[in-house]
Amino acid sequence: MVTPAPLTPDQVWAWLEDVPDPEIPVISVVDLGVIRGVDVDGWAVTVTITPTYSGCPAMGVIAMDIELALAKRGAQDVRIATQLAPPWTTDWMSPQGLAKLEGYGIAPPRAAGGPDRCPHCRSQDVERISQFGSTACKAQWRCRACLEPFDYFKCI
């Protein structure tokens, strides 16, 4: 019988790239920046995650999705650790994640506090409807050129 080679953290990171955010499935949990560490011991894995918002109901689903995805690939004894500090920031989102957000119709976070253009028609003539939106991480904006409302991913 051949003993399988031990798992590597890089392999686990690659698998996590395939775990979608449950609310915004176009980006992965890695793109979202909530994975803070991967520890591997043989085929046992501990994934450290950090919450986006204190009350985000998706965090429980994210933890479960990670466990299932890694277990499906053969990882054993998958453990999810939660780390609060340093607090999550949208600066940790990946560049490809930001591009995927815009392609999906969600304006990516910007330090200026608002989107610079409409994710649909690219017009810069945009206005805020509300500081909050359909999930804890988004706000509602509108394009004055194409008149479409759109989500903006809050910058924190």
């Binding site: 918002y53 204190s54 009350g55 804890a136």
Partner: peptide
């Protein structure tokens, strides 16, 4: 609707903080 959502989101943040 927008204010309803904003209040619910603020509530969610606070209840999340309460849990911590």
């Amino acid at each position: 609707l927008e204010e309803d959502i904003a209040l619910a989101n603020t509530a969610l943040d606070l209840i999340g903080q309460a849990k911590l």
